[in-house]
Design a protein around this nucleic acid. Structure first.
Lengths: 111, 111
DNA sequence: TGCATACTTCGACGCTTGTCAAATAGTCTA
DNA sequence: TAGACTATTTGACAAGCGTCGAAGTATGCA
């Protein structure tokens, strides 16, 4: 059976906690990655182009989940992460868009 | 004469640095305060309803300025802070609005 | 039952952060 | 010019964070 890991309800999502969760280059990249497709992605470290250990990735997933940014589903030995797009949008309208539209590669260059 | 303290140019404003600067309750409150009126506000600790020391406030002003969120003007013995509304809007459209419209007092309550 | 799989938790490590008191720097005014 | 005023810098401290290796916990499978 699929079960869910504990996460804050929409009303309990705190803006400072959310900003702190996003204020890390690894976590921001994970959120960007998750937001690129609507399907859940695996938690596995091999699936991401980031050079960090499995424990560290696990730690980041937990920070994101406890901040209310992601949902984690447990299915057997595998875990799936999904961005809580609608919840974040209802709590902080426009926030996710403002952060994610800003792609690092497409940043404007000063003349 | 009025002069300006050093600050990053628009193109150099980094999203992770900005998010980190905002991910502190004191600094977020300062930004909220600045955004409520368009005029610059003083740096003086007495002008804010926050129980921190003058050095600590000075430190927070610096973090905000170096992140590119504020401009600081020096006029004699006084210093004035202003939010870089247009610069932030051009760099991260919608970001400021998404964070500031979420007033702590007006947060929706879970049923 | 035994073993591989897929993460997580624990413990430890440096580095960063928020905070304050004390000292410093620049500016106005009497 | 001396002294008051405004804000910053310095130095120090405890707390927190990102990171890893090692150990632990479920789960699936043979």
């Amino acid at each position: 059976m699929t079960r869910f890991l504990p996460q804050p309800s929409v009303g309990d999502i705190d803006i400072v906690t959310v900003l702190h969760a996003l204020a890390d280059p690894v976590r921001l990249e994970l959120i960007r990655d998750l937001s690129r497709n609507t399907d859940p992605k695996t938690c596995a470290v091999d699936a991401y182009d980031i050079e960090i250990s499995a424990p560290t990735l696990s730690h980041h997933w937990r920070v994101l989940r406890e901040a209310g940014l992601t949902t984690t589903m447990v299915d057997g030995r595998k875990r799936w992460v999904e961005i809580r797009r609608d919840d974040i949008e209802s709590r902080f309208p426009g926030l996710l868009g403002a952060i994610l539209t800003q792609d690092p590669a497409s940043a404007p260059v000063e003349p």
